[in-house]
Amino acid sequence: MTGRTLRAQLAAQTKLAVFGAFDGVVTVLGAVFPNTGNPHVLMLTCIGLAASGAVSMGGGELVSDSNAGWAASTAIGATTGLGTLVPAAPYLWTSGTAAVVLSMLLCVAVALGISWIKTTDGAGAPTFRRAAAHTHGILAVAVAFTLLAAWATGAVG
């Protein structure tokens, strides 16, 4: 395998890992917001979502028409599962407002990491500012829709 082919393969796996992490963080927000008052339910829900998200994303990549293979499927599955646990992690050691703030900060940190990775995408890669604005904009829309859905269903006041 040539160096260029290896770099291309690693770049493709990195993109899948970024996609998986972002998907995990955004997907679980709908379970975190309504359950901030019940950390036990929140953790059980997030663990279940992490497991099913990891299998769904990893398996979906594996059975798709992509030629990425097992390594890419594992990368996207693992990062989806880990990304899903990120917003819930603070509830392992704290609760209330502190847990909500830490959860938000962790989500922003993941989005910053994703933004940085997007800037290393080779020729034509966006600037960090542009990548961060894009990534955080999508995260903000996801949070807004999640809060709206939680409010509309009576899950939060």
Score class of each variant (00 low, 15 high):
91 Y>M: 12
1 M>N: 11
131 A>P: 00
81 G>Y: 01
74 T>S: 12
154 G>H: 09
85 L>N: 02
49 L>N: 08
96 G>A: 10
41 V>R: 04
90 P>Q: 12
99 A>E: 09
132 A>T: 06
98 A>T: 15
1 M>T: 13
62 L>P: 01
142 A>C: 07
5 T>Y: 02
43 M>V: 15
147 L>K: 07
131 A>G: 04
62 L>Q: 09
112 L>N: 05
18 V>R: 04
54 A>G: 11
145 F>I: 15
134 H>N: 10
130 R>T: 09
103 S>R: 07
126 P>D: 05
93 W>V: 15
146 T>W: 05
150 A>Q: 04
107 C>S: 14
147 L>V: 14
156 V>Y: 06
36 T>M: 14
149 A>D: 12
7 R>T: 12
49 L>W: 08
102 L>V: 11
84 T>C: 06
45 T>F: 11
85 L>D: 06
106 L>V: 02
18 V>Q: 03
71 A>H: 06
70 W>I: 13
55 V>P: 06
24 G>N: 02
99 A>G: 04
42 L>I: 04
105 L>R: 04
27 T>E: 11
132 A>V: 03
128 F>W: 04
121 D>G: 03
64 S>K: 07
84 T>E: 07
62 L>M: 12
64 S>L: 08
4 R>C: 00
68 A>G: 13
28 V>M: 11
47 I>D: 02
124 G>D: 09
114 I>P: 00
83 G>R: 00
42 L>V: 03
97 T>M: 13
81 G>Q: 08
19 F>L: 14
58 G>W: 04
45 T>K: 08
141 V>S: 06
58 G>T: 06
26 V>L: 11
29 L>I: 13
99 A>R: 03
115 S>L: 03
150 A>K: 02
36 T>S: 08
17 A>Q: 00
136 H>Q: 10
7 R>K: 07
128 F>H: 05
62 L>E: 09
89 A>G: 07
43 M>I: 15
6 L>A: 11
105 L>T: 08
14 T>A: 12
143 V>P: 00
25 V>M: 03
143 V>N: 02
74 T>V: 14
30 G>E: 13
39 P>C: 10
31 A>I: 13
132 A>F: 03
149 A>G: 15
56 S>Y: 09
109 A>D: 01
94 T>Q: 08
90 P>M: 11
116 W>S: 08
38 N>W: 10
152 A>N: 09
7 R>I: 10
16 L>H: 05
72 A>C: 04
148 L>Y: 11
127 T>V: 05
21 A>S: 09
149 A>P: 02
83 G>F: 01
91 Y>A: 11
136 H>V: 14
142 A>Q: 03
68 A>P: 00
31 A>G: 15
134 H>K: 07
131 A>H: 04
112 L>A: 14
134 H>P: 01
10 L>N: 03
157 G>D: 15
39 P>A: 10
139 L>T: 03
94 T>V: 12
65 D>W: 00
104 M>H: 10
139 L>A: 12
48 G>Y: 01
72 A>T: 09
65 D>A: 13
98 A>S: 13
108 V>P: 00
122 G>F: 07
78 A>F: 14
9 Q>E: 14
34 P>E: 15
106 L>E: 08
106 L>R: 01
141 V>R: 01
21 A>G: 02
35 N>S: 15
57 M>R: 10
144 A>L: 08
37 G>K: 11
115 S>N: 07
148 L>G: 15
100 V>R: 01
